[in-house]
């Protein structure tokens, strides 16, 4: 630990000046746009606050109690869990085999081009992806219904029926962001030393054994990282719902982030929305702790 006194010595003055001069504006921005809002959000959760209403009383945990009994909020929580619990496992079940497949492609150019193709949707603006898929899902002249029409299947109301809306948004979301996890898995696979595989093959191990006893354990750190990061990012899913369905039909795609946005910016209930945001923060922090715990546990597999 350095003391203030040492820092004020003339020899160190230019260094101290540099540190103070550079750090002050940056930390000021961090304070105004990160620390202050986080704090304010937690504080607002205990007030009835609307920018249109001059009166904003402290109401204790009333916002939280109201949330718990608000059917729309409960629906939003259920929908968020539906999205996370359905999309995360499917994501991992798709991305890991694709990464393993890509890892097995010997030709460099082919592997790189395929990886680029799978990654492409992640770089496109999510709004663009949502608009493209909204068009694909059009009931009358959308490509998807035209395609299943050819197979003799009757039209499906992809985005306009409460039953199909969420699965449709999930498919779009997976298309949009499996590229991230494929690239991360692929990097994890490429880091596994090939001697392990060669040794096992000499011992006569089959394909499944190689996966079960080498790939899977050695990839567990990457997998747990991917799992938790995907969960955290899916908990915050927003744009595709807002653009494609705006939460409908019958709130079937109203997720937590959309609930917070609408409460705050359509209905001006900013205290109420902040309470919902605090709940989202709580869940995210729990998952972050889980991530830290998992990575520590998994580090026993370090090679």
């Amino acid at each position: 630990m350095t003391s203030w006194k040492r820092w004020l010595r003339p020899a160190n003055r230019s260094r101290a000046l540099f540190v103070a001069g550079a750090l002050t504006p940056v930390m000021l921005l961090f304070f105004v746009f990160f620390i202050l809002p986080i704090t304010a959000s937690v504080v607002l959760a205990f007030y009835r606050y609307s920018p249109l209403d001059p009166d904003s009383p402290f109401i204790g945990v009333r916002n939280f109690l109201n949330l718990v009994s608000d059917p729309v909020f409960r629906k939003a929580v259920r929908n968020t869990f539906y999205f996370v619990l359905a999309a995360v496992p499917v994501n991992l079940l798709i991305t890991l085999p694709i990464a393993i497949g890509l890892d097995g492609v010997r030709r460099r150019w082919l592997r790189d081009s395929l990886r680029a193709v799978y990654f492409l949707p992640t770089v496109a603006p999510i709004v663009a992806a949502a608009v493209i898929w909204a068009y694909l899902y059009q009931p009358v002249n959308g490509l998807l219904n035209a395609f299943i029409g050819h197979l003799g299947i009757p039209r499906i109301l992809w985005l306009t029926s409460a039953k199909w809306a969420m699965p449709s948004v999930i498919v779009m979301s997976l298309w949009q962001d499996i590229g991230y996890n494929i690239v991360i898995f692929l990097a994890g696979l490429e880091a596994i030393p090939s001697v392990f595989y060669e040794a096992a093959k000499i011992d006569g191990a089959g394909r499944w054994h190689l996966f079960r006893n080498i790939t899977f354990p050695l990839l567990s750190r990457t997998s747990s990282f991917v799992l938790v990061m995907t969960m955290i990012s899916y908990l915050q899913v927003f744009a595709q719902m807002q653009v494609m369905t705006n939460g409908g039909p019958h709130d079937s795609t109203r997720v937590l982030a959309l609930f917070i946005y609408d409460s705050a910016f359509r209905y001006n209930q900013m205290g109420y929305a902040s309470a919902a945001a605090v709940i989202l923060l709580g869940v995210t922090l729990l998952l972050t702790l889980l991530a830290l715990w998992l990575t520590r546990r998994m580090s026993q597999w370090e090679y």
């Binding site: 961090f30 105004v32 746009f33 990160f34 620390i35 202050l36 809002p37 986080i38 304010a40 959000s41 607002l44 920018p51 955290i232 908990l235 915050q236 927003f238 937590l256 982030a257 917070i260 946005y261 705050a264 910016f265 900013m270 929305a273 902040s274 945001a277 605090v278 989202l280 923060l281 995210t284 922090l285 972050t288």
Partner: peptide, 17 residues
């Protein structure tokens, strides 16, 4: 700490600021 905080949590105060 600010890195793990979802944007939905800070967006309301950020808007007010």
């Amino acid at each position: 700490v600010t890195m793990m905080v979802p944007f939905q949590v800070v967006m309301i105060p950020t808007y007010l600021i």
